[in-house]
Nucleic acid binder design. Structure first.
Lengths: 292, 292
DNA sequence: GATCTGTCTATTGTAGATAAAAAGACAAAA
DNA sequence: TTTTGTCTTTTTATCTACAATAGACAGATC
């Protein structure tokens, strides 16, 4: 096959979820906007809905005939893009499995294991190389540099520089900047999770990313914002992998975030710096502890 | 063709240059080491030398029969790798030619213009995207963000953070660290060029990169060192493109470098910071002046 | 015994082909 | 004015094939 129609399948599934809530479907261009796909794909989705007798579709009149059932959805394995599949598969190998620094990475072998062509693997490796975990020997293999202690220290060093600078910018944002509103919402979610920490502590990972990304974005610097991708991906997989004491760690981080948020809202540069440093220090320690 | 044999051609040319100096050729593995290629390529080179009656080759006995002539070399257009060709071609378009921010980039069109396959262009764009000048819309085109004033300001902001930190680390390097020796050599070249500035001012660009990379490397942080790639490529093409007052600008920068080097050698953190800031400030101004 | 050479295999770099998706044109309908 | 039906055209994502290059191993040579 030349191209998987995962865009279609994924958008179709999301459309069914929408349909479960509202009974009327908007116009084609509007639906395209909502699902983030082109009209061509929207029409393919509508056609399939009609075939499955989920809707009746006559020009502008789109009526939902019945609630979508689980069997109407495409299985979730079929909806992730190849890039996502490769990323997950690769990260599992290098973070969880015994992947020694210095190990050679073979494009063909990797492609075979994942079950794709070499081109996709190759493009993934090129994109991934900016994270500093692998390196290319031209005309030859890739070398795994590994998720080592050095890597973590170098990563956090830059992170700290960038986040301190971004936080300092944050307090200078004008009163009516949307970031303040978002910060309020994030704070509320923090309190909700903390109130029910035993059952909701797993939600921290996602919230953590949302909060720090907000801070980084206030730098208005594409290099700083882009760098956050590296932190996000490392912490994302790291949370999945290292679950020891997750509840305690997350509770502590939530408290630190609240102090940090309060400092931001006080708009006192000194307090912000202090709270930011404290949190970053413990984040670094957590990361380091998980490395042998 | 499936793969260009530029590695062979380039290594062949370099081998001829070597042969012009020494009359005896080392063993195959040694030659491979010297030229940075595998034995397979070395043997291909030797075979061609034999065919051209440049050497006689019988197992270990390799005798140079005659001096290589200009016509023996491959023309230089054939020795640059596809990636280099694409890079030059692309940079010319976006830095020199009328490339408006927001413009769409078309892989197929670009490939046709450069005369390569789409795969190589695509891989180039992926690699290049980390420089923040272009951005991908998934399932759709690339967008040129352009070499704008904002870009230059964001780039220099990060550069200044990184270089100040690296310079501070530099003064803490142990006395016997090879960087001190390299710094001495770089200083000497500065003085040589300054003494003959009218005819040698063009050599500044390369020296500039060598000096700043040395400083950045003392950070021992892969993210800081990798970031220098962005600065290097931008300044590299920028020097080629904007030649107004090149002599004066370079002379001034050389003087600033000398002050900066003296500060580093003094190992006085305060002086280093001052000299570094002064130079980075004028580098930033130079870059900004060239943007409309 | 160490290094070098002849030979062979494995892997990468690149081109070219093909299906999915986007993009869009334009007239007719709402 | 916006939406739809019906197209056609472009463009991307991905696969496959093949030459260049790297690398391995056994036997030859010093």
């Amino acid at each position: 096959m030349a191209k998987q129609n995962t865009v279609f399948k994924d958008a179709f599934n999301r459309c069914l979820t929408q349909m479960a809530e509202t009974s009327a479907l908007p116009s084609e261009p509007e639906l395209g906007q909502l699902l983030g796909v082109s009209r061509t794909t929207v029409r393919a989705i509508l056609t399939r809905c009609e075939d499955l007798k989920l809707i009746s579709w006559d020009k502008r009149r789109k009526t939902v005939l019945r609630r979508p059932e689980p069997s109407d959805y495409f299985p979730s394995e079929e909806t992730s893009s190849l890039a996502e599949i490769i990323e997950r598969s690769f990260m599992r190998r290098i973070l969880a499995g015994g992947a020694e620094p210095g190990m050679q990475i073979n494009e063909l072998e990797l492609a075979r294991e994942i079950g794709t062509g070499t081109t996709s693997v190759r493009e993934f490796l090129i994109r991934f190389s900016r994270f500093g975990l692998i390196e290319k020997r031209p005309n030859s293999h890739w070398v795994l540099k590994g998720f080592t202690r050095d890597f973590a220290l170098e990563l956090t060093e830059v992170r700290e520089m960038f986040e301190l600078r971004s936080a300092a910018r944050f307090v200078a944002l004008p009163e009516d900047h949307p970031a303040w509103e978002e910060l309020k919402k994030i704070e509320a979610v923090h309190r909700e999770i903390l109130a029910d920490i035993d059952s909701r502590y797993k939600e921290f990972s996602e919230l953590d990313e949302r909060f720090h990304l907000l801070v980084h974005k206030s730098s208005s610097n594409r290099f700083i914002v882009d760098f956050y991708d590296i932190i996000a991906i490392i912490f994302h997989y790291h949370y999945q992998w290292n679950k020891a004491n997750a509840r305690e760690r997350n509770a502590r981080a939530l408290e630190e975030h609240l102090a940090y948020i309060a400092a931001l809202r006080s708009r006192e540069p000194k307090q912000v710096e202090q709270a930011c440093r404290r949190h970053l220090k413990s984040a670094r320690e957590t990361l380091l502890q998980s490395i042998p």
